[in-house]
């Protein structure tokens, strides 16, 4: 085979992408003609770290204290006088091949045909398998106490790409609020959309691409220092580390798996079990209430 023929043949070959469609209900739709694929691009060059998106999201969903659907990770780079501060908004990646979906035992989390990865609260048993599965820390168990008592608790929740707004022609709340215009949202399969044009033009990256999840949140101008998994842990400031530890100490009884660094691991293993046992009567009273409601209406 000569070089010209080789080039022609390899160019004409259909892309040999290996799909992982099992267990996700809806096949990946990135770049598939005739389908929609909602996605978000985050232009980190424009993000000023004002956290408006975080507040807008909290307001939109009444997300309880201590858990986030979206947050902004911040890092300081360099040493004085050559320093800069970098930001990285985080949220569920609405993966094309979401690990959380294929591992959910009750199909409570599922993939919508337009690419949203969503949560059915009425099916969720709160087993947290999906949290174990998600490589991006994008999910959380909703704590029992939240301001609006009518909203679900003790089930798993996550970013929905504001499907309730998008279906009405609005932008997701965080995108709408972003003062820097850093978050761009739309159907990446539509070549005329702003996001499709941006993705075609800019150099983009996604988080942990090697895991094969095919994230639909793209970052422009991503910085290794803030994207690295290792550095997220090892380069935390002492203050941030203490914040996390305080959080763990003050929020027992949600998942029974927290360990405070610097304190005995075995003490925490024991403490988690004590918290678990202390929760049993409380959860039992919840079951009792439901049975009562079923019988007496």
């Amino acid at each position: 085979m000569n070089r010209v023929r080789f080039m022609a043949e390899t160019h004409n070959n259909e892309s040999k992408h290996h799909h992982r469609d099992y267990g996700i209900q809806t096949p990946g739709t990135k770049g598939v003609p005739g389908t929609k694929r909602y996605a978000m691009a985050i232009d980190l060059r424009k993000c000023i770290g004002c956290m408006s998106c975080v507040v807008a999201c909290k307001a939109e969903f009444g997300t309880p204290l201590g858990v986030w659907r979206t947050w902004v990770k911040t890092a300081d780079k360099g040493a004085y006088p050559n320093t800069t501060r970098v930001f990285m908004p985080r949220l569920c990646n609405h993966c094309d091949y979401p690990i959380c979906v294929r591992n959910c035992p009750t199909q409570a989390t599922y993939k919508h045909e337009d690419g949203f990865v969503l949560q059915r609260y009425n099916r969720c048993i709160g087993c947290r398998t999906c949290i174990v599965a998600c490589p991006y820390n994008a999910r959380h168990l909703v704590p029992e106490k939240r301001t609006d008592g009518n909203l679900p608790t003790l089930v798993v929740d996550k970013c929905t790409f504001c499907i309730h707004r998008v279906k009405k022609g609005l932008l997701p709340s965080c995108v709408q609020t972003c003062v820097g215009g850093a978050r761009i949202f739309g159907d990446m399969n539509d070549p005329e959309s702003e996001i499709a044009k941006l993705l075609a033009k800019e150099k983009v990256t996604v988080l942990k691409p090697s895991l094969g999840t095919e994230p639909a949140v793209f970052y422009i101008g991503g910085d290794f220092e803030i994207m690295s998994e290792n550095k997220s842990y090892s380069n935390r400031t002492t203050q941030l580390k203490e914040e996390f530890n305080t959080f763990k100490r003050q929020h027992p009884g949600d998942a029974f798996g927290d360990i405070v660094e610097g304190e005995s691991t075995m003490y925490w293993v024991k403490k988690n079990m004590v918290d678990f046992v202390a929760e049993i009567p409380h959860k039992a009273s919840g079951v009792g209430k439901i049975i009562k409601k079923l019988i007496f209406g």
Binding site: W71, K73, T74, A75, D76, N137, R139, I226, S232, L240
Partner: peptide, 9 residues
């Protein structure tokens, strides 16, 4: 770099 803010779940 140093990480100065992040979410904890």
């Amino acid at each position: 770099s140093v990480i100065i803010s992040n979410a904890f779940h």
